[in-house]
Design a protein around this nucleic acid. Structure first.
Lengths: 210, 210
DNA sequence: CGTTGCATTGAGGAAAATCAAGTTGAGTGG
DNA sequence: CCACTCAACTTGATTTTCCTCAATGCAACG
């Protein structure tokens, strides 16, 4: 137990806007988010970038770097945040001795893969408003799982970042928000969102294009 | 070494069209493809599905199931194929004793995560023809890495499956193929593709929209 | 109190989806 | 071997969706 403690001993604080790591940085440690809110951005050679995910308390970052020993995306704090540094080599060593730790690590990596499949489904098959609905419900659920309100929260990211994540332009996000508000699905004012009708939001996602 | 051999001892043959596993199946083994060609499909509750990846010799399938103990997607053979069954529990056990095996497993899972980021980038930021160009170059590269021709190969999947993977409709794929052929980038006749100008295909991807 | 960065809204245009015929080729059975 | 069938593919016309461009609004901050 003492040794597991040592695994998560080192903390690091980040100011809003600060990079936790950048693509190309060598892998040294994984990061468990203790507090705050972050985004990861996948980058293409030609300069294009896309938000690959939004991350909050309890999420583990840096798994992309294990394959090559270098990070393959950027991680940026969207608000002041605190992370735990987990030396990867030590994590591997310890997980050889602790089967439950080992299995936990595998489950976390697998969960990331499953999450990515969900994003692909969203990007590949959904219309703009379906994407935003799915995004809001996902956020809602994750806040709820952490003990925050499922129906009322502040967005930490800009419309542009939401758009990037959902494969849409910021204007499209803005219009979808306005439309949801008109339809009494949500109340939205700047970064603040209140979900008024989660059930109809959920239905909205199911609408195949006919 | 004998024990590593035992790890990959069991084979399974699949006929074209046969499922290797389906979403919901409990995780028992991972699968290493020995020969053939497969697709994995992510599924949404409402029946929508999307091809999450195409897989060939050497690829490892089933990682999505580790997180929950159940498969989260379908895997289907696109041609007669053979796979190796790798009991996951035994793999975990053995990787506790063999650090290099452990690290190899982590790298493979991480590589899948990185691959997924690439697909997100493709789905989120690229236009139809860029997507198809990226797809063809990726296939080409993977064939080359396995000792096959990088410039000439047979597609194992239909236009519809390509479209599903790329977030496009089959008609769009067909038109993009025709256009590439007109522009002398490729020759395509049904499933047979010859890449005539990989360099210009590569350039095509870099074209930001403006 | 103007500057700055987001956000909203509208108008027009481009990309891809949809709808609708045809074509091709592989497989099947006469 | 030939006619038939069926699935996959191609191509064209039209429609939808989202993007682009542009103007304006709004809050935060020095």
């Amino acid at each position: 137990m003492a040794r597991v403690d040592r695994l998560v001993n080192h903390r690091r604080k980040l100011r809003r806007g600060e990079h936790l790591y950048r693509a190309g940085n060598p892998l040294a440690v994984l990061y468990a988010i203790r507090s705050g809110f972050m985004k990861t951005c996948a980058l293409h050679d030609d300069g294009r970038e896309q938000v690959a995910g939004f991350h909050m308390m309890g999420d583990l970052l840096g798994l992309d770097a294990i394959s090559s020993g270098r990070h393959m995306c950027d991680a940026v704090a969207l608000e002041d945040s605190e992370v735990c540094e987990i030396p990867f080599a030590y994590l591997e060593q310890l997980s050889r001795e602790l089967p439950s730790l080992q299995h936990q690590l595998h489950r976390i990596m697998s969960r990331e893969i499953v999450r990515d499949y969900g994003v692909m489904l969203l990007l590949g098959t959904m219309k703009a408003e379906e994407r935003l609905a799915a995004f809001l419900l996902n956020l809602s659920q994750r806040f709820a799982a952490r003990g925050y309100s499922a129906t009322e929260f502040n967005l930490r990211m800009t419309r542009e970042e939401i758009g990037s994540y959902l494969g849409l332009k910021l204007e499209t996000i803005s219009r979808a928000f306005s439309r949801f508000q008109q339809d009494n699905l949500i109340e939205v004012r700047h970064k603040h969102v209140r979900i008024r009708d989660p059930e109809r939001l959920r239905l909205l996602i199911g609408q195949q294009c006919p």
